[in-house]
Design a binder for these strands. Structure first.
Lengths: 243, 243
DNA sequence: GTCCCTGCTTGATTGCGGTCAAGGTGCTTT
DNA sequence: AAAGCACCTTGACCGCAATCAAGCAGGGAC
């Protein structure tokens, strides 16, 4: 805020704040310079689409700043929000590797700066520096974990439990612990996006929130969530009756 | 059948029939010889567990022969069948890379021969031959695709559509096309395993099957499925009313 | 100001799939 | 042959979440 705006400006990878946390941190200075040359950066406003499901995939996209939602929809038009991607995350590397079209879409959820690195450059880097591939592999492994966990949950747990789980996951990045198990969240998501994350309708999200209010599990005002006692949330995960 | 049985015999990677289709096909002869030394093989009977969720992960497992189901269960004891793994597939590479415990379990669904390759050998190979890592990366990418697809479906589609989709997926490997859109499947799965693949109860699977019979979408006898017309199956995918 | 639009909430109703309970079938064991 | 045991099917019932419909709250355009 209060800063000058850069549109389509060329950013510098060497001074990129997220560099230490990304897969690209394994690159040498020479290699990083290649990225610098081969990339193009752009700003996106909330709601703008970075790539669509089905688009040809001509490279990978690295988030310098902001927040991006990865969405996927089925033939009937129903959409779910698969995950959130943060500064330092690289998107689209998977379709890129398989040579496929994108199989999900990416949309800016906050004002974001995205650097796109073209295909030739990435291929060259992958062959030059094997560590880069291993870094991507580890990243893919984590995503796979999360996706399988999600599949399990939406198949077996009721909505209350799934929502409690979501809040606990979001806590890692957006939560702030208080004393005595208190916790406060400042979410980057609208209600309907939360609904899309656990695969339910906005109406059901609304009812679940009210239900959490009534049982004093969590209190919601706007995008701020207050959890009086973490153990209350944890209890929700184990509802499916005493095994 | 009618063959001699090998228990814990040492198999030879050079003559392994699946070699051409695996990630290991990128290895040189010297490297393959390392695998040969560093591995140990075992037979498993149907129902036997190869590794459990939570087990420490001391290497990777390669399927030489047979069929393996990858399962995952939640705290309440509900279990889903995430995917089937076939000869040539390597299992457990993901937990291996992250240094985590296994986060799902693997169980033989047919008599199977599994070769386990110890940690030190795999790490050495990964650093010697960068292509190996990229192969695993591509494999992970495919699994991720499937997992996200599954998450989307179980969140948005009714049981009939999910089951139809499952049959269509199984068609690729177990189906045989006839004339006029006819199709026959010889499934390797029990009904309850099919139920576990789409995250429903056996009773619901039973009812869905009957419903398919009644509407002449597919006919089931034991593990054999006959589909009189593929388009009937395809129609099921688009139920969620005309958008 | 009014209008419109999007996001959110609430209520009434429905129906899908889970649960519980009771058989049936085929295979192995003894 | 009888018993035991998976696996599967069927019926009756119920509850959760989707659906349909209406209304509210906030924000921007004009």
């Amino acid at each position: 805020m209060g800063n000058t705006n850069n549109h389509t400006t060329s950013r510098n990878c060497f001074t990129c704040q997220t560099r230490g946390q990304t897969e690209w941190c394994v690159l040498s200075d020479d290699e990083l310079e290649m990225v610098n040359q081969g990339k193009s950066c752009r700003e996106y406003l909330p709601g703008e689409t970075i790539f669509h499901e089905g688009d040809p995939c001509g490279g990978v996209h690295c988030i310098e700043h902001g927040l991006v939602g990865i969405r996927k929809m089925n033939a009937g038009g129903d959409e779910i929000l698969l995950r959130l991607s943060h500064p330092g995350d690289t998107m689209g590397y998977r379709s890129f590797l398989g040579g496929d079209a994108h199989n999900n879409s990416a949309e800016a959820m906050e004002p974001s700066v995205i650097c796109s690195i073209d295909e030739a450059t990435v291929r060259k880097l992958l062959s030059m520096n094997p560590s880069l591939g291993l870094r991507f592999l580890r990243h893919a492994a984590e995503d796979l974990n999360a996706a399988e966990e999600m599949a399990l949950q939406s198949a077996t747990l009721p909505v209350r439990a799934r929502f409690a789980h979501l809040l606990l996951v979001l806590k890692d990045r957006y939560g702030q612990d208080g004393k005595n198990g208190e916790m406060t969240l400042e979410l980057p998501l609208s209600r309907q996006d939360m609904a899309a994350m656990i695969g339910i309708r906005p109406e059901s999200m609304s009812r679940t929130i009210r239900s959490f209010e009534e049982s004093n599990v969590a209190h919601f005002s706007g995008r701020r969530v207050h959890v009086p006692n973490l153990s209350g949330l944890l209890d929700e995960l184990e509802i499916p009756d005493g095994l």
